[in-house]
Write a protein that binds this DNA or RNA. Structure first.
Lengths: 194, 194
DNA sequence: CCAAAATGATACTAAATCGTATCAAATCGG
DNA sequence: CCGATTTGATACGATTTAGTATCATTTTGG
């Protein structure tokens, strides 16, 4: 019986290297287009590691996505705003959120999640819960403080995020100053509705 | 030299059947997960058709996507609004647009376009031009008639479309009455900003 | 009605790839 | 320091699949 869930120091290091390498490859080409041999060649070690530690290719993919979902928890969760004006508050929240969403890594992640939502449906649902939904709920509490209607939060989120993210996903990202102007427009509009 | 670009009646029929069958399969499983043999088995005829009429699997995929892009030209392009109130106008436009975007076929199409944007980058750009961009421009002319700022068009489009479409893509579509309420909210907010 | 051309069925090649098995090397515990 | 266990390298089997080639069948056009 050589079947043990033992974790040697070396084994852990390999596991780490595998996840990181696999992350880059999966983000770059998608689940199907990356072969197990390719991952091993780039990470070192051998296929034995993958199949003993993650079961199979899908297991590794799941581990990769879970790790990234952690990393991409809505950045607004940690941000604590003092008592600020609604306009200023929404600007800060918006800037913070877009700052993370527009990183190349997050753009690739979002694309990958949508792409694999046929094969792995739960993945997209989970991402949506810990990402957009959470961000919306932060917006909601901020807006409700100024007695705005709760549905404004979703509307604000979508008009803030969609255009810049879509542009980035197409490989035609907006210039930083255009993003800033976009934030201003979105904030102005939602405030006019409070 | 039996290399001719001849189009027999039977040949055209097969071409048609191939495109339609391939459309369903590609929409359902994505480019990579559909094999050429699978398409042929479902469409009738034989692989010869695909490789003589479309060159290779990619050629067939391109034909499928081009056909669908035609089909999914922004439905607002044909719609001619008489002289109506801005509120009524935006409601009609919004309802018409969502009516098309929320069909299962369009949801699958959008998912497929994003999914294959790594392998086929031009595809997403083209879809964006003939779809969202065009819709936004119709919104823009409607809004400018009431002397609203042009950037409101993009904001309105995104807050109208994003939430219902994302929900549908996750397999958790909004109820029809919720969609209608959503349209109302979006229209109300954009009007408050004109 | 018949030859020429197009279409259809199918066998086949070559390559990729997942997962396993086998054996060698490094590492750990006592 | 040594035996047991974990990790590494690699060969291998089995399967899938894109694209080609070959030959039979149907259609077309004169």
């Amino acid at each position: 019986m050589s079947e043990r869930a033992t974790l040697t120091a070396r084994g852990l290091a390999r596991q780490e290297a595998l996840i990181e390498t696999a992350t880059d490859l999966f983000l770059g080409k998608g689940f199907d287009a990356v072969s197990v041999d390719e991952i091993v060649a780039a990470a070192g070690g051998s296929k034995t590691n993958i199949y003993r530690q993650f079961g199979n290719k899908t297991g590794l993919f799941t581990a990769v996505v879970e790790r990234m979902s952690q990393e991409f928890l809505s950045p607004l969760d940690q941000l604590v705003l003092g008592p600020v004006d609604l306009e200023i508050g929404l600007q800060i929240l918006g800037r913070t959120l877009l700052g993370q969403l527009l990183t190349p890594k997050h753009i690739a992640f979002q694309r990958m999640v949508i792409a694999s939502s046929v094969q792995f449906p739960d993945l997209m649902t989970h991402w949506y819960e810990v990402g957009p939904r959470r961000s919306q709920s932060i917006f909601r509490s901020q807006i409700e403080k100024s007695s705005g209607a709760p549905e404004l939060a979703v509307l604000f989120h979508d008009m803030l995020v969609t255009e810049p993210v879509t542009r980035a996903m197409m490989g035609r990202p907006m210039a930083a100053e255009d993003v800033e102007a976009h934030i201003q427009s979105a904030v102005r509009l939602v405030i006019s509705g409070v």
